[in-house]
Structures are given as structure tokens and as C-alpha cells.
């Protein structure tokens, strides 16, 4: 029976492989083109690292990268603290469905809606835009993702350890730092990595809430791409791909490792 039903799925192989071809062919083209000596990005002129050198000398990209890293580290730190507390509070100290929904709202709200909401809010309170306004904006959704990941972890945690700690006379603070936090650590790390990568790549909200003089890296890329095809972007794309792939695979390994402990 079983063999018969898999044999019937032969035709499914076509869309299956088509999906992976569709997902990876464009990326492969960019990577190959980034090593192309020719200025025209469409004909092969031999292997070269020229575009990487050009990229290193591009000051717009450097400034954008620094701005992006400031925003990503700041918003990740804030998201991790607020999101972790929120997850614990939602799991242990309230049964309100409304609060639950509110905590996940930023994750499902279209980015454009959050972007205009914050733009309108910042201009209503006459706050000057800058890296801080992007940092706050990224914390709004980063926090929701951290809270969701940590809550998923809380579902598997044995509460008897915390009870034991309390029964043995530990203060709530000691119980929290010595028992609760260590057991939640894999979830917190995974949530923080998620918030960090989301912030690194985020464009729409940053586009609305950043000051024109302090663009993040995605905003710099956007203005480069708008002017058409420049081989420098191929080199940048290849580097960013390498970074994202490394982070994702490391996160995969890390969560597996910490779960094994």
C-alpha cells in the first residue's frame, strides 16, 4: 500500500525541484556576477575581486552598515529584555486573552501599517527622527518575536524546579536568576537572534522612521538599486548572503546544542 501511494507522487517532483530552482537560481546568478571582471554585469570577463575592493571603499555603505548595527544591537537588547519578561508574565501571571493578542499584534501587523503609525506618532509629538526612532520601531516588533519564542520554550519547562527553589527559601529574585532564566536560555538566545536578523534586514519601517541623514544599510541599498544595476551591489549581496546563511545555520546548530544540554 505504502509503496503504491509514494509511486503515485512521482509527478510532484517537478514542482518540488522547480521551487528550489526558483529560490536559488537568482541568488546563484548574483554570486557568480560578483566575481566578474567585466563592468557590464551580463558577460563574463574572467575572475576578479575588483567589486569587493570597490565596495570596501564605498563610504555610503560603511556609514549605513554602522547605523544598521547600532540599531540592530540596541533594539535586540531592548527586545530581549522586554520580550522575555512579557513571555513570563503572560505564561504565569495573567490569563487575559486580550493581553495575549496585544503581545502578538506587532508580529502580524503589516510592516507598512506599523511604519505609518510610528511616523504619524513621531510627528505628532514633534520628535526629531534619527537612529533612536528606528531603534524604538524595531523594538516594537522584535519584542513580539522574542516573547513568542520564549513562550514556546516556557511550555516545555518543568515548574517543579521553581517550586523547589522557593520551598528551599530562595527569594523570588534568586529563583528568577538562578532557576527560571537558565532554563529559558535557549529560547531567549533563539529569540534574540531572530530579533537581530529581522532588524538587520528591515527596510520599510526604517524607511519611514529614519532621518534622511542617517540611513540604515537597507535604505542605502534601496537608493543604489533605484539607480539601476551596479556590480558593487552583487559583491555586497554575496557578502550579506554569506552573513545571513552563517547566522541561520549557526542558530540552527546552537538551538540543537542547547536543547541537548
Amino acid at each position: 500500500m505504502r509503496r503504491k501511494s509514494t509511486a503515485g507522487n512521482g509527478w510532484l517532483r517537478l514542482p518540488f525541484w522547480l521551487t528550489y530552482l526558483f529560490l536559488y537560481a537568482p541568488i546563484a546568478v548574483l554570486v557568480v556576477m560578483s566575481f566578474n571582471r567585466n563592468k557590464s554585469p551580463y558577460s563574463w570577463g574572467g575572475f576578479s575581486l575588483d567589486w569587493y575592493g570597490r565596495l570596501a571603499g564605498n563610504s555610503d555603505i560603511r556609514t549605513g552598515l554602522v547605523n544598521t548595527l547600532i540599531v540592530a544591537f540596541g533594539s535586540t537588547a531592548l527586545s530581549t529584555i522586554l520580550g522575555t519578561l512579557l513571555a513570563i508574565g503572560l505564561a504565569r501571571h495573567t490569563r487575559s486573552k486580550l493581553l495575549d493578542a496585544l503581545a502578538t499584534l506587532p508580529a502580524i501587523l503589516p510592516d507598512l501599517v506599523l511604519a505609518i503609525g510610528l511616523l504619524v506618532f513621531y510627528s505628532a509629538i514633534k520628535m526629531t527622527l534619527g537612529l533612536h526612532s528606528v531603534l524604538i520601531a524595531h523594538t516594537v516588533f522584535g519584542m513580539a518575536f522574542v516573547a513568542a519564542v520564549v513562550r514556546a520554550r516556557l511550555g516545555h519547562v518543568d515548574t517543579s524546579l521553581e517550586e523547589a527553589s522557593r520551598d528551599l527559601g530562595a527569594t523570588p529574585f534568586t529563583t528568577f536568576t538562578k532557576v527560571t532564566l537558565p532554563t529559558l536560555a535557549p529560547g531567549i538566545v533563539a529569540g534574540a537572534l531572530l530579533a537581530f536578523t529581522l532588524s538587520l534586514d528591515e527596510f520599510v519601517i526604517a524607511f519611514f522612521t529614519a532621518a534622511p541623514s542617517q540611513p540604515t544599510l537597507p535604505i542605502v541599498i534601496y537608493s543604489m538599486v533605484r539607480f539601476g544595476v551596479t556590480p558593487e551591489i552583487n559583491a555586497l549581496a554575496t557578502l550579506l548572503l554569506a552573513v545571513s546563511f552563517t547566522v541561520v545555520i549557526a542558530a540552527q546548530r546552537l538551538t540543537k546544542l542547547t536543547e541537548a544540554l
Binding site: P26, I27, V29, L30, T197, L200, D201, F203, P218, I221, Y222, V225, I233, L236, A237, L240, L241, S244, F245, V247, V248
Partner: peptide, 11 residues
């Protein structure tokens, strides 16, 4: 997980 603008640029 790669930058959305880069993915669009590829096209």
C-alpha cells in the same frame, strides 16, 4: 533570511 532588497535586485 537574506535582505529583501537584494532578493528584489536579483530579479
Amino acid at each position: 533570511w537574506t535582505n529583501f532588497l537584494i532578493r528584489t535586485y536579483a530579479w
